[in-house]
């Protein structure tokens, strides 16, 4: 799939923002007043900023409200509802915490649950797609939820929890890559099934429909070299997971190291998210002879 900056930024930052909201809703840390204001500002900037970025790739963003209508079948529509609900409920909780110095615990718990549900629905947009075998696996929601929780804990300053969650998220990340690498081959979809021409012999794409490129090739067919991919995976693992864990367990100067850990995590996750899209093989590539399987 085409690794569009808008979707990479959207999924990375909204995951972080809703992760932070989740921890704040649970009272971890139990902040009020100015500290709360500062943390909520970060959370809302990430979550809302991410959602806004996602509208940049729309052909008609002015009709975005229509996306709320099909929650019965569409994960994208559910995500729209859940994100707005989470932002509103957490808004009430944040208002009370910042300006009234009170923590409305039940509201916070509801907000945390809605934040979790929002990230789940985002991940289901990808995991539901049978056409992208690499994504069509429970590890995709596990991956996105794990990252959102770990990143949220990191931003919320929950250092021990963050270190543990990062370790789990790293394991899920590696598993997602491992399982993903053979997903297309295991899916049973190949050029023979795509064309139905496998019975008489070996099928090979001989000529594409047009000499130039087209929407399908631009959107769905992105090929990442093996070496390039290995390098980026290493970068994602090191900066997204490894370095932050190391920085978190160093006892000295927690604030400075915490900030460094967050920056490193963000850089690593952006690399991971780029790979998430760029390495995802859509089966339509088979028709163009662009996939080995």
């Amino acid at each position: 799939m085409h690794p569009a900056p808008s979707v990479i930024i959207f999924t990375t930052f909204s995951g972080l923002g809703f992760g932070l909201l989740l921890f704040l809703g649970l009272g971890l840390p139990p902040v009020t007043g100015w500290v709360a204001f500062f943390l909520y500002a970060i959370a809302y900037a990430c979550a809302v900023g991410g959602l806004l970025a996602s509208t940049f790739h729309l052909g008609h963003p002015e009709r975005a409200l229509k996306a709320f209508t099909q929650w019965r079948t569409s994960w994208l529509s559910r995500e729209a509802w859940l994100s707005v609900a989470a932002l509103l409920v957490m808004g009430i909780y944040a208002f009370a915490a910042v300006f009234l110095d009170t923590r409305l615990t039940p509201v916070g718990i509801l907000g945390a649950a809605l934040s979790l549900a929002t990230v789940s629905s985002t991940s289901m947009i990808y995991a539901q797609l049978k056409t992208v075998p690499r994504w069509h696996h429970w590890l995709t929601p596990a991956h996105m939820l794990g990252l959102s929780l770990a990143g949220g804990a990191l931003l919320a300053g929950q250092m021990t929890v963050a270190a543990a969650l990062l370790a789990v998220a790293a394991a899920v990340q590696v598993a997602h890559w491992q399982v993903g690498d053979s997903a297309l081959a295991r899916s049973g979809t190949n050029l023979a099934s795509a064309t139905g021409l496998g019975a008489p012999g070996r099928v090979r794409a001989f000529e594409p429909p047009h000499t130039g490129t087209n929407y399908l090739l631009r959107e769905f067919v992105h090929v990442v070299g093996r070496r390039h991919s290995r390098k980026l995976r290493l970068i994602a693992l090191t900066f997204g997971y490894g370095l932050p864990v190391v920085l978190l367990v160093i006892p000295a100067a927690p604030h400075l190291l915490g900030a460094l850990a967050i920056l490193s995590h963000l850089a690593g996750i952006l690399a991971s998210r780029w790979l998430f899209f760029a390495e995802a093989e859509h089966v339509v590539g088979l028709y163009y002879g662009k996939r080995a399987a």
Partner: peptide
């Protein structure tokens, strides 16, 4: 249509183009 492209992602045949 808001032009989100998700339907084209969901079609295995490449039958939809934005």
């Amino acid at each position: 249509c808001i032009g989100c492209g998700l339907c084209a992602w969901a079609c295995p045949y490449g039958a939809r183009e934005l």
